[in-house]
Write a protein that binds this DNA or RNA. Structure first.
Lengths: 252, 252
DNA sequence: CGTACTATTGAGCGCTCTCAAAACCAGTGG
DNA sequence: CCACTGGTTTTGAGAGCGCTCAATAGTACG
């Protein structure tokens, strides 16, 4: 359960931004209404982006954090040879671009997987206001800390989990996140391709496809192209327990 | 070069804290001398820890960030079955515990690999001061952003790299970090076991050992137990270029 | 000098990748 | 409506990398 649950926990607590009001972002911190209004005023809400458009590309100068309002976003880092590594998928209520603060330029690119609307949160403005609203500053540290914990869970997954465990973890993470925003956690559509899933999970496309087929044969779920219907969440969860037979490093 | 270089970049820019003065931590931000003095006063410097002792364990309540002064630290998350996942190794000048801010309790444990001295930076005190010294706040965001970028590089490594690429990346990362703190980048001692290395890189101990042997046979380096001597850094670096023949996912 | 631990090396297997082809789907134009 | 085209997904067969198991060697420490 270790890796899987951690991943889920992290996903589930991601601040839900819903209608893209920064107010929502700040709710968990107990901001004053006046402060929230100030935050709302600094946001831009550009026209919705169409499938394939970029929020930003690797190397772009860093200006803003993005909050997904609807749709979904894939963040990835391009490799020298034209290939890429998918870093993550972002659903409504989740933030994109936090890893660019340090270098002041984006290390990864973000592309929308379907028609998607976002909020643009200019970072310098946020910084200004955060100086006067310490709880916002703290909230940002929290969000980044959460991202760190999430990526650590991914490290565990990529380091030790089998193909089946990886896909199960991925599906449960999505389910949890859909549930958190009020959608069904047992039936949903994948906005990303098998290719992206494989890339994200460190698996070949064919392996992803085979695992879907296997899970379907086992009756755990049914899959028709992008549509996923989870019949036995419990069995899916039980797959997260790292297989006891696999040699995982002992305490060093 | 993609994954490898990123990893190195990240490692190399980690703020060098050296003698454990928070002043050093803040140097890149251009703090006033008075501010730096204030920061120095809030730090504790406990007795050096001996090999095997913990800075904190998973589940411990989060109070402080730790900065390594000398020695080295391993951070890892325990699994349900008694095994663990090594998250990273921390050399002098690097921070430990940043991923605990959100949940207010440590998600991973940190154990020293050799006699190690650290600085303890109480987080609430840091927060207080940071409210008055915005550049410190920003520096913290930067540090966390850097950690994020670093872990993204690790994701790429674990997702796509071969055993050889992983070990080469690991060694070059260490070399870079040793160099940054004034030590030789071509000869150094590993403070961690093969077991820990394998765990960190998602490889079996035996594979790590075999890769060391192979690199030695190839004349790239010599290895005697913990001691590493890199003869041809260039060839090591050339291994980071992800093998063009391996199928890496195309742009999705 | 024996004990426990860590590291190395070897042999064989299995999971996942690679290569290849077929099935399926969406969109386009005849 | 159907054929055509480009893309994605699925399925199959075979190979290889890295894991597992097992035994040996080297090291630290009492």
């Amino acid at each position: 359960m270790a890796s899987g649950n951690k991943l889920l926990d992290v996903a589930s607590v991601r601040v839900a931004c819903g209608d893209c009001s920064l107010s929502k972002l700040c709710v968990p911190m107990g901001l004053e209404a006046a402060d929230m209004d100030r935050l709302d005023t600094l946001m831009k809400r550009p026209r919705p982006l169409r499938r394939g458009e970029h929020l930003f590309r690797a190397g772009d100068r860093f200006h803003s954090i993005y909050a997904v309002r609807s749709g979904s976003v894939k963040s990835y880092t391009p490799c020298h040879d034209g290939s890429e590594q998918v870093i993550g998928f972002h659903l409504p209520g989740e933030l994109v671009g936090l890893d660019a603060i340090e270098s002041e330029e984006h290390v990864c690119a973000a592309r929308v997987l379907e028609t998607t609307s976002v909020c643009v949160l200019p970072f310098d403005r946020i910084q200004e206001i955060a100086c006067e609203v310490p709880s916002l500053q703290r909230q940002f540290l929290r969000l980044m800390s959460k991202e760190l914990a999430h990526e650590e869970a991914m490290l565990m997954l990529l380091g030790k989990a089998s193909a089946e465990e990886r896909l199960a973890t991925f599906l449960l993470s999505l389910a949890q996140r859909f549930k958190a925003r009020g959608f069904s956690e047992t039936e949903f559509n994948l906005s990303m391709s098998r290719h992206d899933i494989g890339n994200y999970l460190g698996l070949a496309v064919e392996t992803v496809s085979r695992m879907f087929s296997k899970l379907q044969e086992d009756g755990v779920l049914s899959v028709h192209r992008k549509n996923i219907r989870i019949h036995e969440p419990a069995r899916l969860r039980s797959m997260l327990r790292l297989d006891e037979n696999r040699s995982v490093a002992r305490c060093g």
